[in-house]
Amino acid sequence: MSSTTKAPLAVQPNKPIEILPSPSSQLFSNLHPILLLGTLLFNFKTLVNDPVNTLLGLAPTIALLQAFYCILCLPPPGSQAKGSAKKKGAKASSDLAGRIVPTFLSLLLTLFLSAPALYILLILFGAPLTTHQLHTILLALHLALLTTPHLYYAHGLVKETWFQIASLQIPVDEVFGMTLGACVGAWVGAIPIPLDWDREWQKWPVTIVGGMYAGAVVGKLAGAWVFRGWRVKIS
């Protein structure tokens, strides 16, 4: 059942998402990974010493970074589906409002839908259940922030699209790349925990947090430059 032989999807998916062409968009899009990684590295020591408070304190910053990324860099919702005809006619003022509201909604969805769902998923993947609850909840929040706001913003809540996202069948771009990278990074981040190096940073959930930030950044860059337009092949 190799994917090349048939195309089972009813709706042929959208093209990879393009970053808005304006210089400020391009600038922030390039700055975004540096800011994400920088924020984490800058706070890494406190993260190791006090994961709960650090993750809690960092969450608004990351949310803001993701919000700016959505507002500044991503094409406003709806523009993708309706094609480029509308782009020209859109006015700047309504444009801004038309971006802030969906961004806000995306963050709300991230907080109340993605984070709880990812919490359950983290537990099912082996996160501690009876201890470290706050750690894992905040980990889920950060994972949600890194994986979903831009997806909600760019793709809306169309069922077919989310099916495609879940089956990894939308074309790779930096939005999807960041999500995929964060998930894989979080998963790979678990590797150092059992090693007998007796380092403080091996404790829960520091390596996972590190892995998912690194993964998000790598995924975003790879999605933007290397694998843009690819589709993951599952057979």
Binding site: S3, P8, L9, A10, F125, F163, Q169, I234
Partner: peptide, 21 residues
């Protein structure tokens, strides 16, 4: 314990791929 959930996740994605309709 680490690989098994990842394998299940892959199987979900694979099944979704065949069942979007």
């Amino acid at each position: 314990y680490w690989l098994t959930p990842a394998w299940i996740a892959l199987l979900i994605a694979r099944n979704f791929f065949h069942s979007s309709d």
